[in-house]
């Protein structure tokens, strides 16, 4: 096994080459409590600060997604004090003024791009903050979509913007106020509420949902086998 030397919060350990930072910590003997959630690059819970051998530069990464290198030093940031003012979505407007009222620090964005440079998802963080500032909420929502809320951007921001919370806000504003509501959905909900969804199943059978719960297995199997798959794309 090829081994490399890493420094976990400054302390030296030999670990097999090719491990992620998370698995290297476990190999070294840690039993993680913080800084380890999904273990698969989805929860953003494992943000880590990294200095590669001989480099003057600090980099960051997700511990579950970053492979160790010889001479690497790192420390996890299991918690970064967040700033989350309260708001109720139902009393809001999808405008720049609204965003600035909640997060006035967005005004102070220097366009330094430090946030985009550290994003482990390679998002254009600064661009979505700037879009929010312009009131282009659709664009801000689109650009921030893949954000994991790891918070690494916020650790680097010289003007203290909590970018990921701005991203969460614009996505919610967009979906509630800008994307028009699905009228089909309203119709279906009303039908259900009024108990009016009787349906003709494939094979010409008519039944309400509640009646179907009384059918025996044989009947249900027959109905199931009579289904005709609607043509269309798979998810």
């Amino acid at each position: 096994m090829d081994m490399v030397t890493v420094y976990i919060m400054g302390r030296e350990y030999q670990v097999p080459a090719g491990l992620t930072i998370m698995k290297a910590m476990e190999y070294a003997g840690y039993r993680l409590i913080r800084g380890c959630g999904c273990r698969g690059g989805f929860c953003g819970g494992c943000g880590t600060i990294i200095r590669k051998k001989g480099s003057y530069k600090l980099t960051v990464g997700l511990a579950c997604q970053t492979v160790v290198e010889d001479g690497m030093q790192f420390a996890q940031i299991p918690y970064y004090p967040p700033h989350h003012p309260d708001y109720m979505l139902e009393n809001m407007e999808p405008t720049a003024e609204q965003i600035l009222k909640i997060y006035p620090e967005v005004f102070r964005c220097l366009s330094c791009n430090s946030c985009s440079k550290v994003c482990p998802q390679d998002l254009r963080v600064m661009d979505y903050v700037q879009a929010a500032l312009r009131g282009d909420i659709a664009k801000a929502a689109d650009l921030s979509f893949d954000c994991l809320n790891c918070g690494l951007c916020a650790t680097r921001c010289p003007v203290e913007i909590v970018q990921y919370n701005v991203g969460n806000l614009v996505k919610r504003l967009y979906s509630r106020y800008i994307a028009p509501a699905d009228d089909r959905l309203d119709k279906r909900c009303k039908e259900i509420e009024e108990n009016k969804v009787s349906t003709t199943l494939d094979g010409g059978f008519n039944a309400t949902l509640n009646e179907m719960t009384q059918f025996d297995k044989k009947k249900l199997k027959d109905l199931y086998n009579a289904r005709v798959k609607e043509p269309g794309e798979s998810a």
Partner: peptide, 13 residues
Amino acid sequence: AVSETDSPQIHYL
């Protein structure tokens, strides 16, 4: 089940 061709009954099956 939200589309016109669909229903909670078919989802049930």
